[in-house]
Simulated scan of single mutants.
Amino acid sequence: MTKAYSRSQLALRNGQDKEEIWVAYQGKIYDVTTSKLWRNGQHYEHWAGQDLTNELPDAPHTETVFKKFKVIGELRE
C-alpha cells in the first residue's frame, strides 16, 4: 500500500525544513534528495516540496526524468 501525503507534508520536504527533498508529478511523490541538480531544494527556477505537474511543459526534458527517482508515495488532494 502506498502512503499518501498532503501538500503541506510535501512542502516540508523542500530541502530547507527537512533533509529530504521531494517533488510531486502527476499524483506521485518522488525523492530527489540524491540528485545534484536539486541541491538546497532548487532546480533552476523550480523549488522542491511542490507539485511540478504544471511546470514540466516548460522544462527541457520529459517526464522520463522521474524514472531515476524512487516513488515515496502519492499526493493527497
Rank of each mutant, 00 (worst) to 15 (best):
A24F: 06
H61V: 05
Q26D: 15
K18D: 12
A11I: 02
G27K: 01
M1K: 10
A48W: 10
A4N: 12
E19L: 13
S35C: 07
N54E: 15
G15K: 00
Q50N: 03
M1T: 15
P60S: 10
E74Q: 10
A59E: 02
A11L: 01
K70V: 08
E63Y: 07
R39T: 10
T53L: 06
R76D: 14
G73L: 09
R39G: 06
S8R: 14
M1W: 06
R39A: 09
G73V: 02
S35V: 08
N40D: 14
Q16G: 05
L56F: 11
R39S: 02
I29W: 09
T34D: 12
V71T: 15
N40S: 10
N54I: 10
Q16V: 11
Q50Y: 04
L37H: 04
E55P: 01
G41H: 05
D51K: 06
P60G: 11
E45A: 09
N14C: 06
N54L: 13
E74S: 07
T33M: 13
N40K: 14
A4K: 12
I21C: 05
E45H: 01
K18V: 15
H61M: 07
Q9P: 02
H43N: 09
D51V: 03
L12T: 14
R76C: 11
A24V: 02
K28T: 09
D51P: 07
A4D: 05
L52Y: 10
D17Y: 05
H46M: 09
V65Y: 05
D58I: 03
Q9I: 13
G41P: 03
V71E: 14
